[in-house]
Design a protein around this nucleic acid. Structure first.
Lengths: 343, 343
DNA sequence: GTAAGCTACGCAATCGTTTGCATGATAGAG
DNA sequence: CTCTATCATGCAAACGATTGCGTAGCTTAC
């Protein structure tokens, strides 16, 4: 069936031993070969159209040259840029990336981890963003390097890449404060997600620093990071605290849900209520009013996590390393001065 | 380092030969084993936490249990649902999918094909959507089954999955016709893409059937399927034929570009000009006015292509097979009666 | 002129599974 | 009670690459 060309075929063609072929074709072999032989072998390889069999090589070397990427859902536009960032580093080095979707299901995540390990991945980038993750350290202990993205395990030597959530929330609140808002609310993400949790903490802290003591308590917790929950939470906020003039949402999708809820109530954005997002998802420029949000680096986060993983794989990560990526405030049309300036 | 559990370990633990272990663990082994031995082996495997090494198995069986998926760009929201559809079939069967992005670059596509073959993928689903593809048949000839999605190679036994482009365009034009539009234009996709080409052909045909002889020639060809080109083309159309009251776009992104171009000209949608898209991309519900478009089945297309590929891999595809998926007209807010009803 | 040291390559084991074949044990037939 | 089928399991050779070690031939030094 598959008349695949192997080292043996090249060896026959070039009249040398298969081990010689292997060495001639290995760019960083430290074994010296005659130029004549080396070029003869390479010529034969090219002539026969040789393609190495990575499975066989991987079996012998115990390095499959593939890495696993675990994300919640590739259909969420947050993640493809991250994946491309990862690939931009790994693909040129000959790594294949196997992307799996966890759907935020811990069981599924666990099972998929096993699937990846069966395939002998050289490392795993976990973008699954749950805060507690028993078993992740196990994977590391069993010899598979791991890097987490958007997540940071406490007291763990696992390298991570995160965005500067705290600065992001600070930028947002300062922006609203400067516009004159004094009564603000927060739609927080689920606490199980480190992003949701970190942003809620940062929100409370920022409120207190700005002297918005009351606002720091006006929080509605979403059960998931989606539009439905955003819509539900915004109504909850309005009911609990009708005076608010601005809503800080833990991510863009919740903010879009807030849009829908406010519109349903006949309130206009930003005239009646200012709304902010977080992440600056791709395609976000399609929504109206254009959303004021925090831009986090997605492609770059992917790149950084891949670099960290490579270090772990090569063993030259000197202790735990973390990368915190800076964020940027993107002021657009969903925020303005409050209708009634206070006093 | 990696104290990985192998068949040998289980064999020692259970006091049997490794080949016996292999057979005990193979669910569809036709070799009979004593229940006692079989369960002893399985118990030992569970106890030691055995995970098979797919690389080794793949090397021996020449089936890697992985398949390659080639798409233009995972960051284009059209593609993630397709990928998920593919995985919904393949993942439960134990296949890993390796997704690669071609960026519509033929060189890159070719290189990535080799990368996939090096890894011994059992088959390839190509969603790259270029019309001419020398080399694709080569891959098939060399023993790797291929299925194309959104593309259909002429005179080729390669199975394919496509949407019913022609019906889609017919539905759109009929809808516009019934609203009263008699002067229509088309922003066509690049001819190199089968989708762009098929839709343009269908457009001309549908115009003629409806007696819109002139409209069948009012076509502007985009160089790529993006907003910039949509914007450029809409202006071109307006210049060439200022009387048009509706524009049929070859896909949603071109239509969105048309939105931008029309808005820049101070024209409103749909009052001044009706605009239609194609595909019904995810996130499209965010744009205003909500776009009238053709919904194509994305997840389902992925599923279908995976099923076809499995058939090819198992060798029970009786000749070339193709699947044409039905489409659906989604009437929303970007189409209405023309401002001046004719006569 | 011989010992020592390289150089350039071959030999063979190995990675973990699968699988055709061999074989010992058991059972059934006559 | 023997002969042959059948069954359950072991044996060993693959799959294709990598790599430590061995060695023939050559160079260099004394």
């Amino acid at each position: 069936m598959s008349n695949r060309v192997t080292l043996k075929d090249i060896a026959r063609e070039a009249g040398v031993h298969v081990s010689t072929v292997s060495r001639a074709l290995d760019p960083n072999s430290n074994i010296s070969l005659t130029n004549e032989v080396s070029s003869r072998v390479r010529k034969a390889a090219k002539k026969l159209g040789y393609r190495p069999n990575r499975l066989a090589a991987g079996l012998r070397t115990n390095r499959s040259m593939s890495i696993g990427v675990m994300i919640p859902d590739i259909a969420n536009t947050m993640f493809p840029p991250i994946v491309r960032g990862i690939e931009s580093v790994l693909e040129p080095l000959g790594y294949a990336t196997i992307v799996v979707n966890t759907d935020n299901d811990p069981d599924r995540e666990h099972r998929l981890t096993e699937v990846l390990r069966e395939r002998g991945v050289d490392g795993i980038i976990n973008v699954a963003a749950m805060r507690s993750d028993p078993g992740l350290s196990n994977v590391v202990d069993q010899g598979t390097p791991v890097v987490t993205l958007n997540r940071r395990l406490d007291q763990s030597p696992i390298p991570y890449v995160v965005s500067d959530e705290k600065s992001g929330i600070n930028l947002i609140l300062k922006h609203l404060f400067e516009l004159g808002h004094r009564s603000v609310g927060h739609i927080a993400g689920p606490k199980e997600f480190s992003t949701g949790n970190a942003r809620a903490m940062a929100y409370k802290e920022a409120c207190e620093q700005l002297g918005l003591a009351e606002s720091s308590t006006v929080i509605s917790y979403a059960k998931s990071f989606d539009e439905t929950e955003g819509q539900r939470c915004v109504l909850e906020l309005l009911q609990n605290c009708p005076t608010i003039t601005a809503i800080v949402c833990a991510n863009d999708r919740l903010a879009f849900g807030a849009y829908l809820g406010l519109q349903a109530e006949g309130l206009s954005i930003p005239e009646d209520v200012s709304v902010t997002g977080f992440n600056d998802m791709p395609m976000l420029d399609l929504v109206r009013p254009k959303m004021t949000t925090i831009r986090v680096q997605k492609f770059e986060a992917g790149r950084a996590s891949a670099e960290l993983l490579l270090k772990s794989i090569r063993g030259d990560n000197h202790g735990a390393v973390g990368t915190v990526l800076p964020v940027e405030l993107k002021v657009r049309d969903s925020t303005s001065e409050p209708r009634e300036t206070p006093d």
